[in-house]
């Protein structure tokens, strides 16, 4: 039923697809990035792109509650969370290079494979969906999987948390592209969860460092039951 809209505003559709492509690109960039500072900046950019694309969807389809979502994303993921993360790494003094468990080229290859899988999986969903952004569901899913992969391959706690937040970005994108977003209450709840989660992670960082003098989660291997 919304096909008419897609044909009526081809420009908006093009812009949304562009945003989706940028998000995927940023996802790969984060996967390949070794420095935490840059990682936070990339995360911030991904949040900004997400906010822009949500706002465009809201304007072109008259789904005004999505504007609220876009605003929320902007405040939370572009301003507040990067600010907290910046402060955190300054106080923990871990801005520099980070190690990955897997080397970067291999990770990138795995990422490509994930994108292929994501597009294949998303195909039937996007055929069912009637939104303007239905072509981007595959990209959104790919973003989620890439963030997950990043979470697996990082050995330090801070990049893992960034990966977790990036995964939330991808999920939000998937939600907007499949069904024009979730109900407002749910979105507010998720936003709050992310914030609270961030605070808890912050506490954990300090605890972990106090215990092990490092944020390397490989130290936790010794909790294994022998």
């Amino acid at each position: 039923m919304n096909l008419s809209i897609l044909h009526a505003v081809p420009l908006a559709g093009q812009v949304i697809n562009l945003c989706a492509a940028i998000m995927l690109l940023l996802g790969f960039a984060m996967l390949a990035q070794r420095r935490i500072l840059t990682l936070i900046n990339l995360f911030m950019m991904q949040g900004a792109v997400l906010a822009v694309s949500t706002a465009i969807v809201a304007l072109t389809t008259q789904q005004h509650h999505l504007l609220w979502s876009a605003g929320l994303t902007l405040i939370l993921k572009v301003i507040l969370l990067p600010y907290i993360l910046h402060r955190l790494i300054r106080r923990l003094s871990v801005k520099w290079d980070i190690e990955t468990l897997l080397n970067i080229p291999t990770t990138m290859l795995a990422g490509i494979a994930l994108v292929v899988i994501a597009f294949n999986v998303a195909q039937p969903i996007s055929q069912l969906s009637g939104t303007i952004m239905r072509a981007t569901i595959g990209i959104a899913l790919a973003c989620v999987l890439l963030a997950f992969l990043m979470m697996i391959t990082r050995s330090k706690a801070v990049p893992q948390v960034i990966a977790f937040l990036a995964m939330e970005n991808g999920l939000f994108f998937a939600a907007t592209s499949a069904t024009y977003g979730m109900p407002m209450v749910v979105e507010l709840g998720i936003a709050l969860d992310v914030l609270v989660g961030m605070v808890i992670f912050g506490v954990f960082f300090f605890q972990i460092r106090e215990q092990f003098d490092s944020l390397d989660i490989r130290h936790m291997e010794r909790f294994k039951e022998r």
Partner: peptide
């Protein structure tokens, strides 16, 4: 299965 590494659990 209990490897003790978070990465593996995530995997």
């Amino acid at each position: 299965l209990q490897e003790g590494r978070i990465a593996v659990y995530l995997l």
